[in-house]
Amino acid sequence: MEQPPGFTNPLKPHFVCKLNRSLYGLKQATRAWYDELFQALISLGFQSSQADTSLFIKAGPGPDLVFGSSPSACQQVIQHLSSQFPVKDLGPLHYFLGLQVTRTDRGLFMNQTKYAYGLLHKTDFLGAKACATPLGSFKLDNSSPLLADPTFYQSTVGALQYLT
């Protein structure tokens, strides 16, 4: 490591700068940001799920999830987090990461209908007829020429994996 240009101390040429916090763009920055968010949510009484550490749950009255609860409970979380992070309230949740969200009297109803229709439209399968198995009665063979640009196929397979 060397002293950065413009910050060289001629009296101490072998000294270097100590990084006290992760900077934007470094590999450690996302980890440092998550640690701060984690501590902020824990201080509000949330617990990290053992199944998925990015899911935070708060038992009892108050928010079940950061994005889904009563307006007053969400407002409390937003106010607390906005003291530490830049926060923007986008209003009630309708669509998030390919999930359509509808609030009912019984809770939240989530589905991926819009995402699935978008995928069918992108791949020109919107008017395709249904069959009992994904391949129908076709036999697989690898005698076809390779695709010139496999990115469309790869992105479609990735989208199907995300859908499932």
Rank of each mutant, 00 (worst) to 15 (best):
Q112P: 14
G91P: 09
L90D: 10
T104A: 00
G118K: 03
A116E: 10
Y34T: 09
A73M: 14
Y115D: 07
Y117N: 15
L26N: 03
S72P: 01
T104L: 10
F125Y: 13
V66Y: 00
F109P: 03
H80Y: 09
G45R: 05
W33M: 04
H94Y: 11
Q112I: 15
E36R: 14
T104M: 11
A116G: 01
S83C: 04
P86H: 05
V77W: 00
I78N: 02
M110Y: 11
C74I: 01
I78S: 01
T102W: 08
S82Q: 05
G91N: 10
D64N: 05
A130S: 15
A130N: 06
S43R: 11
L108E: 05
C74K: 01
Q84A: 13
P61D: 15
L120T: 06
F96R: 06
Q50D: 14
A32T: 06
K122A: 15
G91H: 13
L90S: 09
T102C: 02
G118Y: 02
A73R: 03
F67S: 10
A59K: 04
G107W: 13
A51N: 10
P71V: 13
G91L: 04
F46H: 01
D35N: 11
G91S: 12
F46I: 03
S70Q: 04
D89H: 06
A29E: 08
P92N: 10
W33I: 10
K27P: 07
T53D: 05
D52G: 01
K27N: 03
H94K: 15
P92Y: 11
C131M: 10
P92I: 08
A73P: 01
K129Q: 10
Q47M: 05
T123V: 05
H94W: 09
K122Q: 14
L126D: 05
F85A: 11
K58D: 10
K129N: 13
D52R: 01
Y95P: 00
A32N: 06
P61S: 11
L26Q: 06
Q84P: 08
R106Q: 15
L41F: 03
N111I: 14
L41T: 00
C131S: 15
L126N: 09
L37M: 07
F38K: 06
S70D: 04
L55N: 00
G127R: 07
F125S: 12
M110I: 14
L41W: 02
G107V: 07
Q100K: 15
A51E: 13
F96A: 10
P71Q: 07
Q76W: 04
S70G: 04
K122N: 12
R106H: 15
Q112V: 14
D35P: 01
T30L: 11
L44C: 02
K114N: 12
Y95M: 11
L81A: 02
H80V: 11
L26C: 13
Q100I: 14
G118Q: 08
K129V: 12
S69M: 00
G98L: 09
D35V: 06
N111Q: 11
L44V: 03
Q47F: 06
L108N: 09
Q76L: 02
T123A: 07
T104D: 11
Q112N: 07
P71K: 08
L126A: 08
K58I: 11
A128Q: 00
T53F: 01
A29G: 14
S54D: 10
G45F: 03
K129T: 15
G68N: 00
T104G: 07
P92C: 13
G91Y: 13
H80K: 04
S49K: 04
L90E: 08
P71L: 08
I78W: 01
V101T: 13
D35L: 07
T30D: 14
